[in-house]
């Protein structure tokens, strides 16, 4: 992170009245992102925020950067076009759980596998807020909402597992209320070369209040947050007496005293195999008990735009620049007797 003193949070605010419900977690995330942008020190004219549709998607109106408030689910595709056309821009996608993983699931997974240099922030509140309380692709089984009056029978996505399965090179999870942690994760995402998937647990206090209380409540949070720190043993709890072991590809929570500290899994976010990260992601299926928080995976793989630019460079070098007549006559033409 550059210690750029050239900006403060105010430089990234707009004159627009922020219109989320009072108490919405989005306010906290907005403040974290604006603060981080000031710290990041990148020219605000080189930053683009792209969103789809949903409460979170109003984000570009509140960021004094370039922005697109596009259509439902398509932000990763539109952002891909921006990033590929202008690799020097810092392109961020903001989406809710419905936007990113229901209607936009296809674009999300393909942007991740391509490793386009996009920073994708998914505000997961496990509900449709803008349309006033329908179940989402991350709503838990049995959840009663206005559109699931007998309880949801749709098995939910685990967003971190989904991103890992989609070949994402950077996958992390953070919590709206924890601004220091959010900032740290935003910085890690920014510094990662390629696509970065960040799930942010975000409280919708109107339609799904306290969904993340297990991770944010004063009495619960230390019991349930499993901090993932690269190179360190995965232990948690107020007394750090609980830990995680991985056996046969499956992660399990244990008492450190029972297994001994040597048996506890050492987190390696850079592991070549996504297996251990995936195993860790399966420790929780929704924030209802002990849940890993932090960077699950951060690995290097060629960035789409860089490989593409290399191909363009090679194609031009081979063909000597833009001699159109020559290239058109070079293939796909026939001489007719």
């Amino acid at each position: 992170m550059t210690t750029g003193a050239k900006y403060t949070r105010q430089d990234f605010q707009t004159d627009q009245e922020v219109r989320w419900c009072p108490g919405c977690g989005d306010y906290t995330i907005l403040a974290s992102v604006q603060n981080f942008m000031a710290e990041m020190g990148v020219d605000k004219e080189k930053i683009v925020f792209v969103s789809g549709i949903g409460c979170a998607s109003r984000f570009p109106y509140y960021m004094n950067t370039y922005g697109v408030h596009a259509i439902h689910g398509r932000a990763p595709a539109i952002a891909s076009g921006i990033a590929v056309a202008r690799p020097e821009l810092s392109v961020w996608v903001v989406a809710g759980d419905g936007d990113a993983m229901s209607i936009g699931g296809n674009h999300l997974i393909h942007a991740l596998r391509r490793n386009i240099n996009l920073k994708i922030l998914v505000f997961n509140n496990q509900i449709y807020g803008l349309t006033k309380g329908q179940y989402s692709p991350t709503s838990e089984l049995g959840k009663r909402t206005k559109s699931s009056p007998s309880g949801s029978i749709d098995f939910p996505f685990n967003p971190v597992s989904l991103a890992l399965g989609a070949e994402a090179t950077f996958v992390a999870r953070t919590i709206d209320m924890d601004r220091a942690h959010t900032t740290e994760i935003l910085n890690r995402a920014y510094e990662h070369k390629g696509s970065a998937f960040v799930e942010i647990y975000q409280n919708c206090n109107v339609f799904n209040d306290k969904a993340f209380i297990a991770l944010t409540g004063k009495e619960e949070r230390d019991l349930n947050r499993i901090p993932l720190v690269h190179g360190e043993k995965v232990v948690f709890g107020p007394d750090r007496d609980r830990g995680v072991i991985i056996e046969g590809g499956t992660a399990r929570i244990v008492s450190v005293a029972d297994v001994g500290i040597d048996a506890i899994h050492v987190h390696d976010a850079t592991a070549a195999s996504a297996g251990p990260a995936y195993a860790l992601s399966r420790l929780s299926h929704g924030p209802f008990g002990p849940t890993p928080i932090g960077v699950f995976r951060s690995v290097d793989r060629p960035v789409y735009e860089e490989t593409l630019q290399q191909q363009i460079h090679d194609a031009q070098a081979k063909k000597g620049g833009g001699d159109l007549a020559a290239l058109i006559a070079s293939a796909g033409t026939w001489t007719v007797a």
């Binding site: 398509r74 595709a77 539109i78 076009g81 921006i82 393909h110 593409l308 194609a315 031009q316 833009g322």
Partner: peptide, 21 residues
């Protein structure tokens, strides 16, 4: 060969979306 970018999108929705971006 003329310095432009061409992409095969994951579907038609993405393809036109990329063009707009």
């Amino acid at each position: 060969r003329v310095g432009g970018v061409a992409i095969q999108g994951e579907d038609e929705i993405a393809s036109i979306g990329m063009c707009i971006g």
